[in-house]
Each structure stands twice: as C-alpha cells, then as structure tokens.
Amino acid sequence: MSAMKAAAVQTRSGTAYEDDFYTWTQEQGARLRAGDLSALDLANLAEEIESLGRSEFNSLVGAWRVILLHMLKFDHQPDKKTRSWAISIAAQRKEAEFILKDNPGLKRRLDEALERAYHGARLGASKETRLRLKRFPETCPYSLEDIRSRPFPVDPDDPIA
C-alpha cells in the first residue's frame, strides 16, 4: 500500500466529499480495502453507489435516444436517409445490447427508458429535420423489437441491419 493510501486509511476525518470528490473517492476506497468500515462516509458512499446505477440506466436511455432519433428521421424524411444514420443505429443497438447484458436488472425499467429516450429523440428529430414537433407522435410509435431489430437498408447493395 502506498504511503498516501496508508495515510488516508489512518486519517479518520479525511477529505470532505464536498471539498474534493476525487480525493474523497480514493480515501473511501482505501478504507474499504483496509476493512476500516467505521471511518466510511456512509451517506455519501451510498449516494455514489446509487449514482453508478443511474448512470447505467442513463447510458441505455442515451443509446435508445440516438436509435429513435434516426428511426424518426428515416420515417419522416425517407428521401434524405443516409448510410451514417443506419450505421449509427447499428452501433447504438450494439451499445444498448452490451448495457443490458452487463446490467440485467435494467430489464424491469425498459418501458421507462423507452419513454425517456423517445421524448429526447422526438425533440431532436424536430430540430434536425426542421419539421414541426407535432409531425412526430407524442408517444413512441416503435416497439422494443423495432428498436432492437428493424432493418435500415440505405441501398440494396449495402444492407445494414
């Protein structure tokens, strides 16, 4: 153990969460590893652990938002569809797949993630296409199956699923 980590474990008060988050995280980690549970900042540590879970949920929402944005653009501006939209959909599908594989507990929140993702995608599609927001349905017109597997070929010689 480095001298700095040893000093962090020995210091009961340590760095305040509000003063230096990075140093606080290093001290808390050192205390956990040393088994010095009585010196942990339990309230803030619990909040940070919960925050890690929220960030996984937000990553799923973000991946789906990009997919839905491009799906809306494909459906509302089919004459402007591009290969980059199809590639973006494929990449974000893979990202969402990895997130769900690594975090199976998120499966019980799929409907909530879809609702949040669609809200952002709808606004983004209106901005990017310059079409009025009311042109896009208020609720998501796509199923989870559509999001996961609907094909998006740009031309017959280059099908991208």
Rank of each mutant, 00 (worst) to 15 (best):
G29W: 06
R122C: 11
P153F: 12
A117R: 08
E48N: 12
Q26L: 13
N103P: 10
K127E: 11
K73M: 14
L106K: 02
L69F: 05
I89P: 12
T139A: 10
N103T: 12
A30H: 02
E47H: 06
T25Q: 08
F57S: 13
R65F: 07
P156L: 10
I89S: 09
R93D: 03
M71F: 15
L60W: 05
N103V: 00
R150F: 10
A30P: 05
P151N: 13
L60F: 08
T23I: 01
K81Q: 13
R31N: 05
R148P: 05
N44T: 06
D36E: 15
F74N: 13
R108P: 01
T129R: 06
V154A: 03
T25W: 01
L133M: 11
Q28Y: 08
A63I: 05
E18G: 06
I147D: 03
F152N: 10
D20R: 03
I87P: 00
L131M: 15
G53A: 10
A43N: 04
K101N: 08
D41Q: 02
P156T: 08
S55R: 15
R150M: 11
E27N: 00
G14K: 00
H76T: 14
Y17G: 03
Q92M: 14
S88E: 13
A63R: 09
P153K: 08
T82I: 04
K107R: 08
L52N: 11
L110M: 12
D157I: 03
I49Y: 09
S126V: 04
A86Y: 08
L32G: 01
D79I: 01
D36C: 09
P137I: 14
E27D: 00
M71N: 11
E145N: 13
K81F: 05
R93W: 00
G29M: 12
R65C: 06
F74V: 14
L114F: 02
L114D: 03
R54C: 00
D146E: 15
A96V: 07
A30S: 07
S13H: 08
T15L: 02
R135S: 14
F152A: 05
V154F: 12
L144R: 13
R12Y: 10
E56I: 03
E112R: 08
D111N: 05
E95W: 01
L131G: 09
R148L: 04
A91K: 04
A43D: 11
L40N: 07
R116K: 14
L110F: 05
L45R: 00
P78H: 12
R31E: 08
Y17D: 03
R122G: 05
G62P: 11
V66H: 11
W85R: 05
T23W: 04
